[in-house]
Amino acid sequence: MSVDPSARTLLAPTGVLRASINVGNPILAYSDPATGAAQGVSVDLADALAKRLGVPLELKVLKSAGASVETVTQGEADIGFFAVDPERGAGIAFTAPYVIIEGYYLVRDDSPLTAMEQVDRDSTTVVVGKGSAYDLFLSRTLSRATIVRAPTSPAVVEVFLAEGADVAAGVKQQLEADAARLGGLRLLPGRFMEIRQAMGIPKGRPPEAIAHLRAFVEDMKANGFVAEALRRHQVSGVSVAPAE
């Protein structure tokens, strides 16, 4: 795919592509245990875009979705990787999604809850990662249950157990891994939401900028880059989003 020379100026106006990376979503980005460096599908996409534009890449590695959103909204990064949400859309222009992730509920084995439809009750407390897609979605859709916010998404199950809460909400794979590691926990059947994970830029950038980024995402899906990145990082249970 050839690059319009204007894309470099529009997407990396400082001459460096500054990418906000949220390692609070370990399905798409994580810190390497040996080196501490950020790795994952989001990092691979940022690197591919920088190479396509012919500019250096600067990663701004953050521990939560909320911090990543704030960094891009304030123009401190040129691009970021987010779950599409209307609240975030006030400050971020999104591409179409590149992957689809599922949100699930986790409970203790002895919990009386057996279906996700039972969660929204007056006596139920639900733990989510502060500022995550699950936080934004459940804040809009749960009318009776009480929401408790963990500082980051990877800390949700820890807070859920420490607080004696009823439900933990988050990425299916993260919850499955915590359940296998800790024992005595189970997922409620079925997803409560589908997360459309996309790239985004600050809303104030020219419309041509998001058009270039959207074309990049579509090309990365079509040429197999996203699928290969998922395989390389051994991410299962996540699907490449359809072309748009």
Rank of each mutant, 00 (worst) to 15 (best):
I92K: 11
A29I: 05
G80K: 11
E87C: 01
V43Q: 08
A34T: 14
A90N: 14
A77M: 09
F82N: 07
A37M: 15
S68R: 00
T71L: 10
A83D: 15
S64P: 04
E70D: 14
L106K: 00
V41G: 13
D47R: 15
Y105M: 09
G91D: 05
A90L: 15
Y105T: 07
T73S: 15
A90M: 07
G89A: 14
I101H: 02
T73A: 15
L57K: 10
G80V: 08
R52T: 01
I100H: 06
T73C: 13
G36T: 09
L106M: 03
G89S: 11
S42H: 11
A46F: 11
V61K: 13
V99M: 12
V107W: 06
A67K: 11
A93E: 11
S68Y: 05
A48M: 01
A50R: 08
T71E: 14
E87I: 12
I100W: 00
G66E: 00
D78V: 01
V69W: 07
I100R: 09
A83K: 04
F94T: 13
G36R: 08
S42Y: 12
A67G: 13
F81L: 00
K60M: 14
K60Y: 09
L59N: 09
P56W: 06
P26S: 07
V69L: 11
Y98W: 11
A29T: 01
S31C: 15
G36K: 09
I100E: 13
L45M: 13
A46H: 07
P33M: 11
G103P: 06
G80N: 04
E102G: 12
E58F: 11
L49F: 11
S68V: 01
A83E: 15
Q74T: 10
G40C: 08
T95E: 13
E58N: 13
A46I: 09
V43R: 05
F94R: 10
A50W: 02
E87T: 12
G89F: 00
L49V: 05
A37N: 15
P33F: 07
F81M: 00
V41R: 05
T95W: 04
A37T: 07
S31T: 03
S64F: 08
G75H: 04
F94I: 13
G103M: 03
Q74M: 13
L45I: 08
D32E: 08
V99Y: 12
E70A: 09
P97A: 02
L106C: 02
R52C: 03
A37R: 15
L28W: 05
I27F: 04
V55Y: 09
F94A: 15
K51Y: 00
G40D: 02
T71W: 06
D109G: 06
T73M: 03
I101M: 08
D109F: 04
P97Q: 04
G75A: 03
K63Q: 06
F82Q: 04
P26R: 07
V61T: 14
V69P: 01
A50L: 12
T35R: 08
A96M: 12
A93L: 12
D78H: 09
A48G: 07
D32T: 13
Y30L: 10
A93W: 06
G54R: 14
A29M: 02
G91R: 09
E87M: 14
R52Y: 00
A38K: 08
